[in-house]
């Protein structure tokens, strides 16, 4: 019995290899030590959930993965984080290029005050992904289709993105991130500002995206983590206490703090 599970895990890890591997990552905001010695292997073509009480450093760690922490003056990152085996904090890596490969979706939908079309076309234009107008149209359409938004907005691409509903705005932001053809998609509580129906749509979308991307999602909803993710990491006070298959974390966690958190006894 025990043996079969390990065997299965072995096979699984062979199929889906590590996309991102972080080793001994420490993050400081000035004197605040926000992330302490976190090491993690994030798999390709799967969804990894970060859970944990507020302020435990989930967002901070997530922002290390696309170097968004560089934009915060007082923030300092130590340790190594590799994407496909290359250190992303190496001097030769341009953080701006990196962010095209590691897309990010934020907690609150943040469409630009531009048309729906321009919102999606923004990234591809900057990175020169389209050779022609027709090319760009194609990229915009496919991004919107993958974000399951095409049918709803195809007749009003010139309308402002800020005029959409909250759920549509969030899917627009996901489409915008997809349009730069990233390999990894980071999502920081992408559903916390959405109603249940919009949440369900986004969750469905995440499940769909798993086929082509490595998705990392921060969430405060245990159900959501259980529904959409294959791997779950539990953070607590800047430490990553536990990282395992989602099914394991939610049925039989090793750590008592994890147990307490998922059963709602603190957090």
């Amino acid at each position: 019995m025990n043996k079969t599970i390990t065997a299965e895990a072995q096979i699984a890890s062979n199929i889906v290899s590590a996309k991102i591997s972080a080793r001994k990552v420490n993050v400081f905001y000035g004197d605040t030590h926000a992330i302490k010695d976190v090491s993690i292997e994030i798999l390709d073509r799967s969804v990894t959930a970060f859970i944990g009480p507020s302020g435990c450093g989930k967002s901070t760690f997530l922002r290390c993965l696309n170097r968004m922490n560089d934009t915060i003056d007082i923030c300092r990152v130590e340790g190594t984080i590799e994407l496909d085996g290359h250190d992303i904090y190496d001097a030769s890596v341009d953080p701006v290029q990196l962010r095209a490969r590691v897309g990010m979706v934020f907690q609150k939908p943040n469409p630009f005050p531009k048309s729906i079309y321009d919102n999606i076309a923004y990234g591809p234009k900057i990175h020169g992904l389209a050779q022609s107008k027709a090319d760009l149209d194609g990229i915009v359409e496919s991004a919107l289709r993958r974000a399951a938004l095409w049918e709803e907005v195809k007749d009003r691409l010139a309308a402002p993105g800020t005029g959409l509903s909250g759920g549509q705005q969030q899917r627009l932001c996901i489409a915008r991130a997809i349009a730069t053809a990233p390999e990894v998609l980071l999502m920081d509580e992408p559903c916390s500002a959405l109603d249940p129906i919009a949440t369900a749509q986004v969750e469905e979308l995440i499940d769909e995206l798993r086929k082509s991307y490595s998705v990392v999602i921060v969430t405060h909803s245990m159900q959501q983590a259980a529904r959409v993710s294959q791997k779950t990491a539990f953070f607590h006070l800047g430490l990553m206490l536990e990282y395992d298959d989602t099914s394991k974390i939610f049925t039989n966690p090793d750590h008592e703090k994890t147990q307490a958190y998922i059963t709602g006894r603190f957090g």
Partner: peptide, 27 residues
């Protein structure tokens, strides 16, 4: 201009200059 717009643009791989020119300045 909300910080979220800045972050959104930077996270798409825009430089600070592009963010100012295309997002912040028009807003």
């Amino acid at each position: 201009v909300p910080r979220a717009l800045r972050d959104g643009s930077l996270a798409l791989g825009a430089t600070r200059g592009e963010t100012v020119r295309k997002i912040l300045f028009p807003a």
